[in-house]
């Protein structure tokens, strides 16, 4: 599991890769949160294109980042989901708080 972080203006993009579960989510959370604290972005893009497995720990990861970034009025955008990841995401009701790109990859 890895995350590649890039910043352009007020947009922070985190490109996740590998498998997201309770074990791997801890490290991802730390890396993304450090980048948020450093850059204070108004938009956090979470790109799941290279994620090949995700359980509900991924939902916790998105929800936690949403809570963090919304304190500074930032927004979260989730994209690059495969059918299977979208299926997990949909269960969560996350759609009401973050923008989900429904284009399945």
């Amino acid at each position: 599991m890895s995350v590649e972080i890039s910043v352009k203006g007020e947009v922070l993009t985190a490109r996740l890769a590998g498998e997201i579960d309770h074990h791997t989510a801890v490290g991802l959370r730390k890396e993304i949160d450090t980048a948020i604290d450093l850059n204070l972005p108004s938009l956090l893009v979470l790109d799941f294109e290279k994620v090949n497995f995700m359980d509900s720990s991924g939902i916790g990861l998105v929800m936690g980042r949403y809570k963090k970034i919304s304190r500074t009025k930032g927004e979260v955008y989730v994209c690059g989901m495969s059918q299977n990841i979208f299926k997990v995401m949909k269960l969560s009701g996350l759609e009401s708080i973050v923008k989900l790109d429904k284009k399945i990859v």
Binding site: S56, S57, G64
Partner: peptide
């Protein structure tokens, strides 16, 4: 806590 979604059984 905050980082768990509470959706394990729902999944």
């Amino acid at each position: 806590g905050d980082e768990r979604a509470g959706l394990g059984f729902a999944v």
